[in-house]
Computed example of a mutant assay.
Amino acid sequence: MNRAILLLSHGNLASAMKESVELIAGIQQQLFALCMDDQVTLDSFSRELEAAVNQLLDRYKEIIILADIKGGTPCNAATLQVLKNSRVQVIAGFHLGLVIESCLSPVSPKELLANTSRSICYINPHKY
C-alpha cells in the first residue's frame, strides 16, 4: 500500500489522533498530521497544506486526507487540493476507527467509510 494518510484539524486534534492510533497500532510511517491554530487563515493554511501534499506526493502514489469536520477551514483547504490533483482524496469527519482502518487497510475511501460507519452505534439499551 503506497499511500499517505494526512490528518487535518482545528487545534491539536490531528496530532493527538496520530498519537492515539500509534498507541494502538504501532508507528505508522505513512500517517501525518497538520494542525491549524487560531492565527491561521484559509489562505495560509492552504499554502501550508499544498506544500505538505507536494512533499507527500513525491513519496506516495496517493494521499487520503482526513479532515476533522466538513465545511471547516482544514476541509475547505483539502478540497482545493482535490481540485489540483486526482491523487488526493478527502474524507470529512474522522474518528479513531476510521484513521486506524485507513492506515491498515488498502481499500478505497468509499469502502473505508462503509466499513467504519458500522462501528458508530448507540449503545444505550433504552429505546427512544
Results as ranks from 00 to 15, higher is better:
residue 26 G to H: 03
residue 120 I to S: 07
residue 81 Q to D: 05
residue 70 K to A: 13
residue 57 L to W: 04
residue 109 P to V: 07
residue 37 D to P: 05
residue 77 A to C: 10
residue 115 N to V: 08
residue 4 A to M: 10
residue 122 Y to C: 09
residue 93 G to E: 08
residue 59 R to A: 11
residue 100 I to E: 04
residue 70 K to W: 13
residue 99 V to T: 10
residue 104 L to Q: 12
residue 71 G to F: 08
residue 88 V to H: 01
residue 12 N to V: 03
residue 28 Q to H: 04
residue 92 A to M: 01
residue 128 Y to N: 14
residue 56 L to Q: 10
residue 58 D to Y: 00
residue 52 A to Q: 15
residue 84 K to H: 11
residue 77 A to F: 08
residue 71 G to S: 12
residue 87 R to V: 07
residue 74 P to L: 06
residue 102 S to W: 04
residue 45 F to R: 05
residue 37 D to G: 10
residue 29 Q to S: 14
residue 1 M to W: 05
residue 15 S to W: 02
residue 14 A to Y: 01
residue 24 I to E: 06
residue 42 L to D: 02
residue 28 Q to K: 12
residue 54 N to A: 11
residue 83 L to M: 13
residue 66 L to G: 00
residue 55 Q to N: 15
residue 128 Y to W: 12
residue 100 I to D: 05
residue 64 I to Q: 03
residue 90 V to F: 00
residue 9 S to D: 07
residue 122 Y to L: 13
residue 3 R to F: 08
residue 28 Q to E: 10
residue 126 H to L: 11
residue 124 N to Q: 12
residue 111 E to M: 14
residue 47 R to N: 15
residue 69 I to V: 14
residue 46 S to G: 13
residue 81 Q to S: 11
residue 78 A to W: 02
residue 73 T to L: 12
residue 46 S to P: 07
residue 38 D to E: 14
residue 62 E to K: 13
residue 65 I to A: 02
residue 34 L to V: 05
residue 114 A to W: 01
residue 105 S to E: 09
residue 68 D to I: 04
residue 80 L to H: 12
residue 100 I to P: 04
residue 11 G to C: 00
residue 24 I to C: 09
residue 52 A to E: 15
residue 119 S to W: 10
residue 99 V to C: 01
residue 100 I to Q: 05
residue 125 P to E: 13
residue 63 I to A: 04
residue 85 N to M: 05
residue 72 G to V: 09
residue 106 P to C: 03
residue 79 T to G: 10
residue 115 N to E: 06
residue 18 K to Y: 01
residue 18 K to M: 10
residue 85 N to H: 10
residue 20 S to D: 05
residue 123 I to Y: 13
residue 103 C to K: 01
residue 106 P to I: 02
residue 53 V to W: 02
residue 79 T to N: 08
residue 126 H to E: 09
residue 73 T to V: 13
residue 75 C to F: 11
residue 49 L to A: 06
residue 87 R to I: 05
residue 81 Q to V: 04
residue 76 N to Q: 13
residue 44 S to Y: 06
residue 45 F to P: 09
residue 33 A to V: 07
residue 78 A to K: 04
residue 47 R to M: 13
residue 7 L to C: 03
residue 55 Q to H: 14
residue 90 V to N: 03
residue 56 L to P: 13
residue 126 H to G: 03
residue 104 L to M: 11
residue 45 F to I: 01
residue 21 V to W: 06
residue 31 L to S: 02
residue 59 R to W: 02
residue 42 L to W: 05
residue 128 Y to F: 12
residue 77 A to V: 10
residue 19 E to G: 07
residue 109 P to E: 08
residue 72 G to A: 15
residue 114 A to L: 15
residue 65 I to H: 04
residue 42 L to E: 07
residue 78 A to I: 02
residue 125 P to W: 03
residue 5 I to E: 00
residue 52 A to Y: 09
residue 38 D to Q: 14
residue 98 L to R: 09
residue 72 G to R: 06
residue 52 A to P: 01
residue 25 A to E: 04
residue 38 D to G: 15
residue 76 N to E: 06
residue 101 E to V: 00
residue 106 P to D: 11
residue 67 A to T: 03
residue 107 V to L: 09
residue 21 V to T: 09
residue 128 Y to E: 15
residue 28 Q to V: 04
residue 76 N to D: 09
residue 110 K to G: 07
residue 33 A to M: 03
residue 12 N to Y: 01
residue 24 I to L: 11
residue 106 P to L: 00
residue 103 C to R: 00
residue 1 M to K: 08
residue 91 I to E: 00
residue 65 I to T: 06
residue 54 N to M: 10
residue 116 T to W: 02
residue 17 M to N: 02
residue 40 V to G: 03
residue 62 E to R: 14
residue 99 V to Y: 00
